[in-house]
Design a protein around this nucleic acid. Sequence first.
RNA 1: GCCGGGGUAGUUCAGUGGCAGAACGCCAUCUUGGUAAGAUGGAAGUCGGGAGUUCGAUUCUCCCCCCCGGCUCCA
Length: 611
Amino acid sequence: MKKSTEQLGLMRHSLAHLLAAAVLELYPNAKPSIGPSIENGFYYDFDFSASRSADSRRLKRESTQISDKDLPRIEKKMKELLPSWELFERIEVTPDEARQMFSGNPYKVELIDELEKNGEQISLYYSGPRNSIPDANEATKLTKLQAGFLDLCRGGHVEHPSKDIDSDAFTLTHIAGAYWRGDEKNPMLTRIYGLAFNTKKELEEHLAMQEEAKKRDHRKLGKELGLFMFHETSPGMPYWLPKGVVLYNELVNFWREDHRARGYQEIVSPLLNKKELYITSGHYDHYWSEMFVAETGDEDEEYGVKAMNCPNAHVVFASQPRSYKDLPLRLSDTDTLHRHERSGTLSGLLRVRSFRQDDAHIYVAEDQIEAEYQRVFEIVERFYSLFGMSYSYRLSTRPEDIMGNPETWTTAENTLKKILDENNKPFTAGDKEGAFYGPKVDIMMKDVLGREWQMGTIQLDFQQPRRFNLEYTDKDGTKKMPIVIHRVIYGSLERFIGILIEHYAGAFPLWLSPIQIKVLPIGEGQYEYAQHVHQTLKEHGIRAELDDSNETLGKKIRNWKLEKVPYALVIGDKEVESQKLKVESRDSEKSESLALEKLLEKLQKEIANKA
RNA sequence: GCCGGGGUAGUUCAGUGGCAGAACGCCAUCUUGGUAAGAUGGAAGUCGGGAGUUCGAUUCUCCCCCCCGGCUCCA
């Protein structure tokens, strides 16, 4: 019988309780806080610092330090306890009773206080042997239960854990720090993560899948394929290597060509700007602490290293009188940006400190917003479908820290919602995830490890035009303020390429491949002809590489495959004699024999089609 | 930034309080080949950086840097 996802959730949540029970057996002073089920498993957050009161230094050290090495012991304890967990039993108690019971645990008390404030019934869940279910009165006594485990919980468990949970189908995976209630100002708790499935087989399959996924990790492939590197001299700032630059430039060139045809005009603007520019834009108040700052000899002069393109685009807009006839005015740029992201957040190409966006700022009249959004959606679909990538939209609304008045925000948010609805774009809600100057529609994608990333974004901005006093002359001769749409399609080129590498597992389509074809002469006898072929391909704009190494054909084929180059030409005596090239494809077992001109045609056509 | 785990040859990784190891890659020579690793030889290291303990530290201790998994943040 196939269990539903809902039941999987119940099982995972039950395992979180089992984890807490096991931890308390082994670390009686640990304070459990919360432990939900999550995708593929569960976690539970504990405060292990509780045991700091222990007298001896040695004890203190033992009890406060928990690491991966302790997980097997905890997992073993879980498996020991599981058979005795015959059932879960709900016990309802009053807030005071609950507080009494958890008086040593400030986290639980905080939860209880909150439940009480919200007028919710407080419940405990007992799990353990059938014959020692406590009643509410017993439960709240401070004495330890004879058997089983009690936790503050609103419920959602399997009925009979010992029967419903396969003890070979879960495992503890790793530990991590996590702030209590997700707030940095709160103490950091120790989170223990576990995986859980219905069967051992499913667990093993999941683990095997993750191993497979790691092979596609862009950081690993980037190194293997020589695309990019990082160096400790500039953490979070990628070095693009020759092959990576080819890929990078192909993406940018395609973007340029496409956008030029859509009426975008590219600008390039200064990378260093006086602080005053960012004061005008509002970034100084909201963002200065995360910008790199460049100082000059003059101590009154402080420059911010460009971290976003918008202020400079606004300067360009304002640099000359604009007419309604100029709108929508689409200014695009791909200047390098630097942001001082917190060190712990850096992650390969997916989160970096220096990057380029395929950015554009579109100045529109208010009644042009919707039509322009539709045009941007078209670009998104064109680009993402070209790569066969699946993405989702997210509507991000106002964050805590906003610029402008809330009414304007509400208008902007409603405008976006309406556009999404009318265009039949399903979206998820990104509450409080908007930019400080306006709400936005984000394009979300997952990396190979299942982590979600924001790719492109289309933002609506009523605030910055006001701050920059942007205006255009309308039909009737009056001055009006334009509205700005900030938009990126790829997002950052760096992040996009990271995702792209994983998407293709490094085997890029021909037009993006750093090396498109390898020429493989079998022996020295064919070198001359191979060189001719290689040269001709290069002269026709094909990125060809000649492998004239002193290796066997088998080895050359192996290297070709490992480099994930789309095509190879094997050149032996037969080929030299017949002047027909044997074309091998990365993606197919079959080879074909073609004259050089035919091969060129085939490659050029495939490149033009971006197939 | 915070919690936890790491950093040894170009790469992937073993290892040790007493001369630094393997495989692949690289270089040379031999081999001149028909579809995923031909053979032999050679070079290659500040054991992330600094300080300390020690007769002696790559190994133990402390500080710093960088990377990885999370948390938080993400214009």
